[in-house]
Design a protein around this nucleic acid. Structure first.
Lengths: 349, 349
DNA sequence: ATGAAAGCGCTAACAT
DNA sequence: ATGTTAGCGCTTTCAT
């Protein structure tokens, strides 16, 4: 007796296979599978049954070519290990899940030539829109974005000239606001700890906004420490040790992100430094990690999830309206959280 | 005087446009752009110049349909916010960057029906291979993977029946090994803190391996605490508080991941508990975060980056050889790191 | 080294 | 409600 087996196809199944198996024309099968147009309930059922039985998976390559529409949204972010960007992606996902659109992620590594390459690859799939982090791109990248004739949303940052729409916060203002809060609280000998600048424009703008606002309060940054490489707790400890050994009289440390701030906090607590009495601290981003620390570092929430949601919404709107961009500018306001490490302190006078 | 401007095309550029602009046949243009076949240096230069000047971006949709080959590798992981998976992705990227293959990421959210949907979407793009986390999938998912007739690599876990190839560690053994180390060190009143099981098979297997090995040493898990929802430091603190209030006589806590272990550690240190004298701790994963904590919790490194690399290598090999799978099984051995929180202790006798 | 023709699997547009 | 035809932009194959 021969054993009957589900045949394992060498050639992937096509609409035609479903058409033959169900005795319905290819066109009607296509309509059923896309739930477009009028199809009788009976044929619909027969088609669905056949498609399921055969294990048919539609070919979007062919579909996209025929319809000249591809429901992909390219998302280009600098890094996945930053913790911030996965949250932006979640926001994007949340919105796109209620649409036929699907995000496709590319990672630019804070490297403009690589960003250019990633975008080129992405555009070769003819996505319906692009969401891209930052406003600083190579001229070629900007040219491609403009020429693609699709909605483009630049996210995270507001300080610059967008190609089309933009959703984010002003990092200059964020830096300035933190500076003001620190100055108002009475801190005077302030150290800055951050990433090496050329890589990260947003960190640079925060630094600029920070120093600018301090200057207006008659304060100069007393010392700074820049690093390269991954930012983990250990890096924050090390940098904090270095800057405090060099400048033991600092009374505040402003870190360019929460992770290194958390490392610095742990270091200071171990050294028995009185926080925030002797030394205040602040980070940036508002990541979840901060919730479990012995003290909650001051930080500024940049509303990552909301940035993702708004950006995705703009793309979805454009696609729905059939327009290739609508030059929106959505300014989100970061929320300063003083936590336990940024407190008004007695004056020195 | 009219101002000459680069015309902004409504219709995306095609090979034909480049062909006309360069006076070279479409076919030859195609050859140049794909760097395949013999083309004279002169024509090549002309084509490249025209393509660049026009800002031509090839249409991979059309190319994929014509060639029946799409250089995408689908990667399906449960979550992006887990810290573990971005590292696996890095490993995959590292290898694929030296090939024409490109990863496309889908997130299954530890949810089999959703995983099924994500895979279906992915397969509709006819990728050259699939890398998917875990061995537990719905029957439909397994059927799709088999029917796709492309290389499939299941990653992270070894304990089960793979569809094709598999790269990972045995979580049962990992749990068992940690149990043995704890027992040998002399701990006897052991608590387990982990995720709610049905969601996460690998955590479940570790738990099974752990309790099994303890049983062989004549020890039972004295108490356990399960949680749902995100795992951050705060969750680790809260769970630790709960279990220690209920069972103050525990002498060891085994956490299902490093993040909650770190939270637990911070909690214990604040409470002034002597670690590892009174209480030992261990987590799981070997994440970078641990490096900056006041004490380094014991953990087990699961070699995430290497898992990604090996998996990608298998796909790349299959694509290169033109085979649709080769049933490899790569068993990685996790590394137990006792850190500062798992130390031999004096016997109670 | 280059070109011409056919067709990949699907859908738009137009029948019926 | 269903079917027919043409063609999306590229590559394969076969000429030259």
């Amino acid at each position: 007796m021969t054993i009957s087996q589900t045949p394992r196809p060498r050639r992937p199944l096509t609409l035609r296979d479903v058409s033959e198996a169900s005795g319905v024309s290819e066109m009607t099968v296509s309509r059923v599978l896309r739930q477009s147009g009028d199809v009788s309930e009976k044929t619909r059922a027969r088609v669905l049954e056949a498609a399921k039985r055969l294990g048919y998976v539609p070919n979007k390559i062919a579909g996209g070519l025929a319809s000249q529409r591809v429901n992909l949204v390219g998302v280009i972010i600098p890094s996945l290990s930053n913790l911030v960007f996965p949250e932006v992606l979640s926001g994007i996902n949340e919105v796109l899940e209620d649409t036929p659109l699907q995000p496709v992620v590319g990672v630019s590594r804070y490297d403009p030539p690589h960003e250019e390459k990633v975008l080129f690859e992405m555009l070769s799939w003819r996505p319906s829109g692009v969401i891209i982090a930052g406003l600083e791109h190579s001229e070629a990248t900007r040219a491609m974005l403009r020429a693609a004739d699709i909605p483009v949303v630049e996210i995270m940052d507001l300080d610059g000239e967008p190609v089309d729409s933009v959703v984010g916060i002003s990092h200059r203002r964020a830096g300035a606001e933190m500076a003001r809060a620190i100055a108002v609280a009475g801190y005077r000998r302030i150290g800055f700890l951050g990433t090496k600048m050329p890589m990260d424009h947003r960190a640079r703008k925060r630094f600029e906004g920070f120093t600018g606002a301090l200057a207006r309060a008659g304060i100069e940054v007393a010392d700074h420490e820049f690093y390269s490489g991954g930012s983990g707790l250990a890096k924050g400890r090390e940098m904090t040790r270095a800057i405090l050994e060099r400048s033991p009289d600092l009374d505040f440390l402003y870190y360019s992100n929460d992770m290194i701030a958390a490392g610095g906090l742990l270091y200071c607590l171990e050294k028995g430094i009185d926080i925030p009495g002797t030394l205040g601290l602040a980070g940036f981003n508002g990541i979840e990690l901060l919730d479990g620390l012995p003290l909650r570092p001051a930080t500024m929430d940049i509303r990552r999830r909301e940035i993702g949601r708004k950006a995705a919404q703009i793309i979805a709107d454009c696609v729905q309206k059939g327009v290739s961009g609508l030059g929106e500018r959505i300014a989100l306001v970061p929320r300063l959280d003083p936590g336990d490490t940024l407190r008004p302190r007695p004056h020195d006078t």
